[in-house]
Design a protein around this nucleic acid. Structure first.
Lengths: 363, 363
DNA sequence: TTGTACGCGTTATCAG
DNA sequence: CTGATAACGCGTACAA
């Protein structure tokens, strides 16, 4: 015991001489081996609980490991088997709870699979996105989960990553040009439903606040809106679709503009909840009433749809599940051989009808 | 459709039994050395741009490195200098945008310092928090940023970590018993201000919806409320302070209960925005009007305080900055020698007065 | 100015 | 069953 202590002291002293900076003293296999006067190989095998090691040896190894509070060094392990056990994530932003919810789902799966997660935000710009992708690459992530910015896609770089065998899985906002696994919801169908809901509710003049032009979800939702309108032979003027954006101020501005131009629809199907809430704010400010004067429907709801007055009709996306599925697909791409064919998983969303889109009686 | 999903997952699980072996072929120092028929040592030195290497050699090394798209292997580097360049983060939840905002600030600083960030969520339970701490420890993080759960603290384990030379920095929800750097806002002062604001506005009967009992912020805010009330000689009954919680449903329930008991205050200072919004919802449902019947003040506002009707008076916390400061303190603890004394940084918050707490004229 | 050799902590291989 | 030994990729004394 004394000798062990002395040796350890000398060992630590020697190390701290070569590197005077702070030195964490994690116990290593070697420490256990020395203490027990056996080889590191045996210790390694014992701790891995392998069949080809004496039960008694195992016992004392485990005991000593516990005594020294041994923790395997994951870095050494990774160097050895040459994979980082890390995957990267790129989301546009953190402002709404939509992406955080997805992240929770991702984390669950990633943890279970024994991987680490490196989270980055592109802040909705292609430039930062590219920087993040390179950062992740430099950190040797084994795969990347990404929801692209509203500015568009760094398609060339996505392809480059895939070519250098770093699999990518897109979710929510997917790339149209890259062949890779994708997780989406049936935006088209839900947009169609939402629009039909407004039509069936008896609203005549219906507008759509569309999202950023380059996003696939924007196009799908717009397509759903237009097709529903066509199916029911509604007039579609050039004003029927207004391109707004993703944040609430855009919806606010658009609504204000309509009011100013005195071009008021009876109902608006909005690209997402923030724009719908922005529009709602403008409506109230102008002394109008929702849904009496203008009805609203949002998309990809967060908790706040329930808290506003009137509660907002909105499409509920399975965000947690989306994260789970995306992570599973990526881990499959990383660990399976041969690599599975890229598939596009379409999750089921649903429309929650609330007061903001319910036609007032006698109107 | 459900069956399709089930099958899909079974499919994925079945395939995950097959064993992977394909290895990414990153270029290494050795590859460059071989191509140039020089030693890896020289390549290493050249790439580090050191003075003691021939300029021409440097040139060809850089050229070859670029040609082979060489990226230094961070894992090998970490094994060598024996630090993981990783720090861990534990937040209670992701539901509101409060913590995500903080995370953005943390990420900025952490990236700049060349560290990685491992993010975990405790889901407001001590058990998950402990599991996360151990996970981070096993991943050899060099330090931990934490905002504790509403259930209380794993104080023993915090101390254990600090003793084993893993520095911890607390932010927002801090530990009272552990000596470590902390980043908070002046909860007491702001609560005092907020209460005084209600008093000066002419509200007579003022209540407080308090947060989870074990949190330091709960106690500070409650203290601020009580002291302001005392200063202005207001009656404080046993009903003046109601313990609610952190989420909106609690505020909703508490408000409903007050209404049912017909024990209506003129104004309520709420622990946070979600509880205030929950209360607001209850107020509206019961046909009452805010602020005419009951005025509300929230805390730690997120964007949604602006979107509701009426806009909510709330304390604005510098969340992004809080993340930055906390990260800087931690990195100082990790990299500086000698380790700086633990300091508690108190950030400046401000009260944004909006319609929800403005006394109606002639009332 | 460059090459050799070793160590970081681990696991795999091959002898005993 | 166990022990040497060689990797993994990098940096760096020490020698040439």
């Amino acid at each position: 015991m004394d000798i062990v202590f002395a040796l350890k002291f000398i060992y630590i002293f020697a190390l701290s001489f070569t590197n005077p900076d702070s030195m964490k003293k994690y116990a290593t296999l070697k420490d256990i081996a020395n203490a027990l006067k056996i080889s590191t190989a045996t210790v390694s095998r014992a701790l891995a609980d392998r069949w080809d090691v004496n039960a008694e040896t195992k016992r004392i190894v485990f005991e000593e490991a516990k005594r020294q509070n041994y923790k395997p060094n994951p870095i050494a392990k990774r160097l050895q088997n040459r994979h980082s056990k890390t995957i990267g994530l790129v989301v546009p932003e953190f402002k709404t709870s939509f992406f955080p919810n997805i992240i929770s789902g991702i984390q669950k799966v990633v943890d279970e699979a024994g991987f680490q997660l490196l989270i980055t935000q592109s802040q909705e710009t292609m430039e930062v996105e590219l920087r993040n992708l390179k950062l992740l690459e430099n950190n040797m992530v084994e795969g990347i989960l990404i929801s692209i910015t509203r500015e568009g896609e760094n398609s060339d770089y996505y392809q480059e990553l895939i070519d250098s065998e770093i699999p990518i899985v897109f979710f929510n906002r997917v790339s149209s040009s890259i062949e890779a696994p994708k997780v989406i919801i049936d935006d088209y169908k839900l947009a169609f439903f939402a629009t039909e809901h407004l039509i069936y509710s008896g609203f005549k003049k219906i507008y759509h606040f569309a999202g950023p032009e380059k996003l696939s979800v924007t196009m799908e939702r717009k397509r759903g809106f237009l097709d529903a309108m066509k199916k029911h032979h509604r007039d579609i003027s050039e004003n029927s679709v207004l391109t707004t954006g993703v944040f609430s101020d855009k919806g606010y501005d658009a609504m204000k503009m309509l009011i100013q131009k005195n071009d008021l629809p009876e109902a608006i199907f909005c690209f997402n909840d923030p724009t719908a809430l922005g529009a709602l704010k403008a409506i109230k400010e102008e002394g109008l009433i929702c849904p009496d004067d203008i009805a609203l429907v949002g998309f990809s709801e967060t908790e706040l749809a329930l808290l506003v007055d009137p509660p907002l009709t909105s499409v509920q996306q399975p965000s947690f599940e989306m994260g789970e599925v995306a992570a599973r697909l990526l881990i499959a791409q990383i660990t399976q051989n041969p690599v599975p064919e890229p598939e596009t998983v379409c999750l089921i969303a649903k429309l929650n009808v609330r007061k903001s889109s319910i036609k007032v009686k006698g109107d």
